[in-house]
Design a protein around this nucleic acid. Sequence first.
DNA 1: TTGTAAGCGTTATCAT
DNA 2: ATGATAACGCTTACAA
Lengths: 373, 373
Amino acid sequence: MSGNVQTIPQMEGPVANIHDVAKRAGVSPATVSRVLSNHGRVNVQTRTRVLQAVEDLHYIPNALARGLKTRRSGMIALIIPEIINSFYTTLARGVEDVTNEHGLHVVLGNTDEKLSKERAYIDLMLAHYVDGVIVAPASSSARHLRPLATRSIPVVLIDRTVMGYETDIVRGENFESAILLTRHLLELGHRQIAFINGDAATSSARDREQGFRMALTQAGTPVAEELISRGSWFIEDGERRTTELLDKSPGFSAIFAANNFMAIGALRALRGAGIRVPEQIAIVCFDDVEAAAEIEPFLTVMAQPAYSMGTLAAKLLVERIEEKFTGPAREVVLSPRLLVRRSCGAPATLTGLPRELSVSRLATAGSVTGQSE
Amino acid sequence: MSGNVQTIPQMEGPVANIHDVAKRAGVSPATVSRVLSNHGRVNVQTRTRVLQAVEDLHYIPNALARGLKTRRSGMIALIIPEIINSFYTTLARGVEDVTNEHGLHVVLGNTDEKLSKERAYIDLMLAHYVDGVIVAPASSSARHLRPLATRSIPVVLIDRTVMGYETDIVRGENFESAILLTRHLLELGHRQIAFINGDAATSSARDREQGFRMALTQAGTPVAEELISRGSWFIEDGERRTTELLDKSPGFSAIFAANNFMAIGALRALRGAGIRVPEQIAIVCFDDVEAAAEIEPFLTVMAQPAYSMGTLAAKLLVERIEEKFTGPAREVVLSPRLLVRRSCGAPATLTGLPRELSVSRLATAGSVTGQSE
DNA sequence: TTGTAAGCGTTATCAT
DNA sequence: ATGATAACGCTTACAA
């Protein structure tokens, strides 16, 4: 096995272009082009000759040259902030399944929640003339999205809003869902609830926090500012800030984490401090923790329909790309589901339980007034 | 909020090109090009004038035109089979972190374990003249990789081998690791072990199965063919086949799942059948189940160093792209780590436990003979 | 139905 | 140090 490896550039022949194919098929480049892009009608005889030549020469049309002419690439960009978070990857699967049906390819960019990376990806995609962009923005800033509109490249926002940029958006309902999730804790008797929020630069963080505050206010429970912590969406930060809260403002009996990752971080912190979950401190969060929940039904979560968000966003985008729809910006708001799971404390009762123990749906029209965004 | 949305193509101005920039800066297009691609030397005065014009016009160089000329795109493609599997996404993070340092952008393609999708992505990337490709192949087929070599586009395989194509590869050690993992079960007293394998078209599936067989043989335990099941790598398939095994060949006391997803599927199946894990049937698997393990230390796994695999593969690729290394194909084999976790059965003992309870490293040079690939 | 030729926006070569 | 000019490989009027 080791030893007799050959060098890499095996058979470094010249790459065939459309002229080579034309010559071999005895036609003009224009005809080859017509065959390959299915435009003008072409004799079935010559068509097969051309296809044969394409085959023989392993011809792959140069997408750069083609795009330079047509200003289209057949690619759409999907830009997400956390590639390791299953919420965004299942969403990506949804996008993919729809776009592939329309002959479009998805290229994915991970921004790591950094505006700078997001900007770089947008520019990259812009420069490559992608046909459309779906982006879950790392912040509410929209300046870097402008050039897309200028070039009339369709954009669909997903999961998060931005400010001052009207475009199609598919997102989860955050405000009322946060109210419900908070109420769930209140009903269990919790009064001192810590809120571990994500980056306040994102709309979802702001909406969820407002929902949290509203629920407390409605219940006549004072909002303890010292129990509200903001930072980044990552596991590590959730862990750090939970530890911080335990130090500075102990005494809370529950934690509301604004996403799944921070909930895991909080869990780590509590375990590290020798605190049992949920017996001593309960945790709930937004977004599901799929695989984890499979292994042990645990953590009550407000699960967003990630896959559907992806398919819907993709549909909106494809409609724009194919110009089936040219109207004003649309907003699709999907309702998360409250999944109440049992803790690990009572393993005997787990066997054979259905995977979702309890599901409550959000009413589409909420009772809360004045709340928008 | 609802109502007064404007239409999308706000400010659909013409897009500036290099001529516009040149005109505004009072220079020739060639000079603009020189400034932006840092080639020939250019007067510092004119340089700033050019950059000012670029700024003013929001000029973004057309990557298609540029690539058409230079045959480079500044992008590398990363093609993975399962975007929802954290093994591949953490690997992707590793790739990203290294390539970004070198000014290269990663575009990611998900093949869903389908050769057809992999082929489509390779062709797409080929057509777009990516500077390099890292691929975790869906099968051992290599035909569709040939054109990459023809165009001397560097390729690094990751996680899985292919047949008849010599190129750089970074992979986990599968054979001996499977032996160790099997031995772990044998030492716990298990004799009837079911093996839920992934797609036999992938090298990792074959190697892991061979390791499994070898461990049994070495221990003098007969290999029960009816307990070996092959199929796809997905959760659902792992679940289906586990149920099948429970039906047709009951009596096993442990399951060796060839990856994390099938282990989750197996767990589902066992739960569905009212079987307690690991009290009645134990499960071990390849690849970690990070988030899940955070929530409840569970499942003994052979965890591969996904992030490092990504960084290493990226380093090899960058070396090829920058032509720092032009030698023969290299093979990097990383050793997984056996993480022995406690089951959920004894929650009282969990508090404050370190996250990795026990770690054993593979010897680099194994004692097993004749085994390669 | 097919061929001719111009042009997409860059970069590279050659002058100046 | 900078400018003119010819490609790069394709598509698309327009001609035949």
